[in-house]
C-alpha cells in the first residue's frame, strides 16, 4: 500500500467562514507532504471541500505526468486534453484554455487556479460567468473584442482538428452569419455587451462551458473515497 495522506478538514465551505479556514497538512508513513488549503480553495466555488480534495487526485496525476513538480505545465495540459504525447503541441483552443487557467500568467497552473477555473465549467455556475469566460477565450488577441479574423481563425482551427469538411466559401458564410447575428452595432467586432446579449439569445453556444463530470466528482474518482475512509479512521 502506498503513502496515503491524512486529511483533517472535512467541512463544506458553505458551513464555515473564510476566517475559519485551516491549512491542511498531511503525513504518511513514507513522507511528509504539504497539501493545499482545501477549505480556502473551495470557498467561493460550487465545489464542496470533499470535491476539491477529490479533484486534487486528478490535479496530482496531471501535474506529475511529465515534470514531477506538482504544477501543470502546458505540455502536461496538452497530454491530458488530447490523450496522447504524440499529438502536436500546438492547439489554438488548448493554448487559450491553458492561458486562462494560468491566472497568474507564470506559465504553470497551480492547484488553486485549476479549481477556480474548473468551477466556471460546473453546471451550476451562472451563465453570466460562463459567458464572461468564453468571451475571454474567444478574444484571442485580448483586445477586448472578438474580431472577425479571430473568429475565422477559430473556425479554421476547429476544422483542422476535427473531421468536418467545409469549403472556404462555407467558412466565410458561417463567419458572416455569426457577425450578422452578434455584431449588433456593425463595427466588425463583437464587444462584451453584444456577446452577453448574443449568449442570452443563443444559450446553446455556451454548451461547451459546462462539464457534467463536475456534478459527480467523487464518483469519478473512487480512489478518493478510499483515502477518505483511511483518513477518518485516523
Amino acid at each position: 500500500m502506498g503513502c496515503l495522506p491524512t486529511k483533517h478538514v472535512r467541512d463544506s465551505p458553505r458551513s464555515l467562514g473564510v476566517h475559519e479556514a485551516v491549512a491542511v497538512s498531511a503525513e504518511s508513513s513514507c513522507e511528509k507532504v504539504d497539501l493545499p488549503d482545501f477549505l480556502n480553495i473551495a470557498t467561493g466555488t460550487p465545489f464542496t471541500v470533499s470535491e476539491v480534495e477529490a479533484l486534487y487526485d486528478l490535479f496530482r496525476k496531471i501535474s506529475n505526468s511529465v515534470i514531477k513538480d506538482g504544477l501543470i505545465h502546458k505540455e502536461e495540459f496538452h497530454v491530458a486534453l488530447f490523450r496522447s504525447k504524440s499529438k502536436k503541441k500546438q492547439n489554438l483552443f488548448g493554448d487559450r484554455v491553458f492561458d486562462l487557467f494560468d491566472q497568474k500568467g507564470n506559465g504553470v497552473i497551480e492547484f488553486g487556479e485549476f479549481i477556480r477555473s474548473l468551477s466556471v465549467f460546473h453546471p451550476d455556475t451562472p451563465e453570466e460567468q460562463k459567458a464572461a469566460f468564453a468571451f475571454r477565450l474567444y478574444d484571442l488577441r485580448q483586445t477586448g473584442f472578438i474580431e472577425r479574423h479571430e473568429l475565422k481563425e477559430m473556425v479554421l482551427a476547429l476544422l483542422d482538428e476535427s473531421n468536418l469538411d467545409i469549403t472556404s466559401d462555407a467558412v466565410e458564410m458561417i463567419v458572416d452569419t455569426t457577425f450578422d447575428q452578434a455584431d449588433v452595432n456593425r463595427d466588425g467586432r463583437i464587444d462584451q455587451e453584444e456577446w452577453n446579449v448574443f449568449t442570452k439569445d443563443n444559450p446553446y453556444v455556451l454548451r461547451n462551458m459546462s462539464l457534467p463530470y463536475l456534478k459527480d466528482i467523487t464518483m469519478i474518482f473512487p480512489s478518493f473515497v478510499i483515502h477518505s475512509e483511511v483518513s477518518e479512521a485516523d
Binding site: F82, R83, M154, M173, I174, T177, T178, V205, M209
Partner: peptide, 25 residues
C-alpha cells in the same frame, strides 16, 4: 448543416475545448 450554423455553435458542438478528456486520464 454546418454552413447554416453560427460559428460559436459549431465550436461548442464539436467539443472545441476537449476539457472532458481531463476526467478520463
Amino acid at each position: 448543416q454546418p454552413a447554416s450554423m453560427n460559428a460559436f455553435e459549431l465550436i461548442s458542438l464539436n467539443r472545441g475545448l476537449n476539457l472532458d478528456n481531463l476526467f478520463e486520464t
